[in-house]
Amino acid sequence: MSLKEIWVVATGPTDLAKGARGLAEKVNAISFGASLAGADLTLVLPEAPEGALIEDYAQQIADLLAARGAKLVLFDADVRSRLLAGTVAARLGASPRNAVELGVADGVLSVGRMAYGGLAVALERIASPTAVLVVGPGTLPAVEDYPGAGEVEEVAAAIVPSGMRVLDIRPKAGETVNLASAKRVVGVGRGFAAEADLELARRLAAKIGAELACSRPIAEGVNWLPTERYIGVSGLTLRPDLYIAVGISGQIQHLVGVNKAKTLIAVNKDKNAPIFKQVDAGIVGDLYEVLPALIEAL
């Protein structure tokens, strides 16, 4: 038995309403400037004025949700949605959770979230009158065959000024990469002795049409690769067709980001590395020997 109604708060275009459709009979949304695809009803707030943050709509969003009796509110996992989830939830007396699993049994919602850096999944029941959840990409498969009733209500609300002002918006330095949509990924870890040696991994990635990713120490220890390429519980979680871990021992905090890969392969010189307990195929060997030979053989 599915839920009667779910609310979705969207800071931009998202499939979240289509995902929520799988759990509830009615999907309502709050969005900014335009209605949300897949929703039955969208309350449309104005876009934030120049220099203001949409997060400063938190009070109005909380008021709207309270006035409409929302019991379950979903947010995406992007930075702005996450902040809104927290500040809206504070006003509704809720503790937002990062949902990696969502289920409904007998009309009761069950939420799965990661615990202890990915070592475990905690199943929880939300005890507050309103549940606020941050839903990671891929958690709720989009239901495409029902477009939603598409009703729209414009809400004339003015931002409550927090005094914060956006002075500038700059593109991020360096490359932009969308690892979440990559079908094949080569991950590098501390087995690489020098930054220049990553060229070996780049060549392998180029050969098999893969994107390059890394474990946390490479992005936030030695800073050889940007944080956008870092996989782990506090970084990205991916579901690629193929993941090749090179010089990565396989700490749970990293593995949790790739253990949904269809095929997982590892190269590591330590035969006792935990990663070898999770692979489809692996080579125990020195990556400086294995990678050149592998690139040659492909």
Binding site: G93, A94, S95, R97, S110, A115, L119, A120, V121, A122, L123, E124, R125, I126, A127, S128, V256, N259, K260, L264, F276, K277, Q278, V279, D280, A281, G282
Partner: peptide, 18 residues
């Protein structure tokens, strides 16, 4: 606000371990 029902390690994906 939250009641924890269980905390369990994820089920291992079955892998070929080759």
């Amino acid at each position: 606000r939250v009641e924890v029902k269980s905390v369990l390690a994820p089920e291992q994906q079955s892998r070929q371990l080759d």
